[in-house]
Amino acid sequence: MSAPIVKLVAQRIALGILLLLAVSVLIFAGTQILPGDVAQAILGQSATPESLANLREQLGLNDPAYIRYFRWLGGVLTGDLGTAMSSGQDIATSIKERLWNTLFLAFWAAIVAIPLAITLGLIAVRYRNGWVDKLISGVALASTSFPEFFIGYLLVFYFAVQHQWFPAISTVYDGMSFGERLQAIALPAAALTLVVLAHMMRMTRAAILNVMQSAYVETAELKGLSASAVIRKHALPNAIAPIINVVMLNLAYLVVGVVVVEVIFVYPGMGQYLVDHVTKRDVPVVQAVGLIFAAVYITLNIIADIAAIVANPRLRHPK
């Protein structure tokens, strides 16, 4: 690793941290603008002006906003996300398991979707403008255009109701074996795969086609390389940066955008958790989940940036 690349990577990471702080301010400010406060929410019907004042004093709600922000931030940094108002449970503990479930589902969807999308993209370029290309593009676009819930129910109908290969409801619990877990998430993972496939496939195809105009691709063809070898060895390495970017965007979607699919399959992930607590107006939970989603999003984008920097031979091997 050389000096300029280390500097660029450090810059990206610092920028990401700064961005995350800004997002935390926004989330905190957003919840402050809402009418009512935690004291009111906790006491509910039984609130008297005295008890409200007492509780506010106790919770430190009378302090200026910035002090409360830093108190909250300090808690977040030490792993204390606060207590859920609706259930009185520690948020960090309830989130841990659900975050793990969400990441598990996202991971398996990604393991299938990313290689599949890139391979399909490569095949589409190899047979560009032919019927294979059109078929791949058509099917991928169709699967993206259908709403997620439609795909979800379609999968349930065929694979759970008609053939009963997979469960219609993806319940997971402690003590489940790894195989059982995989079987439980097969259908939601398939639905997610179908949703993100087309975006990555089309981007792969476009990025590689862009590179196919280059003089070095002609050089490779004039060496006698086969069409697929030209695409794989000479075009793909130079198209990798935009592909990584779109892959990371879709990975982020797999984590933070799975609400609908989780609800359909009743999967105990972050999305379900968020939806539940939004309806209950449980502000501390919404804050915590929002911050985690933002962190995931920013982290994945930093990884995409860094990967794109590292993929550039000019930065990796300076003069």
């Binding site: 280059s214 003089a215 070095y216 002609e218 050089t219 490779a220 004039l222 060496k223 000479h234 390495p237 130079n238 031979p313 000019r314």
Partner: peptide, 16 residues
């Protein structure tokens, strides 16, 4: 038959 292009700078693959 081998080929030598006008702009070698463009004809070499930057990634290899």
């Amino acid at each position: 038959v081998c080929y030598v292009a006008q702009s070698a700078a463009a004809a070499f693959n930057p990634a290899h």
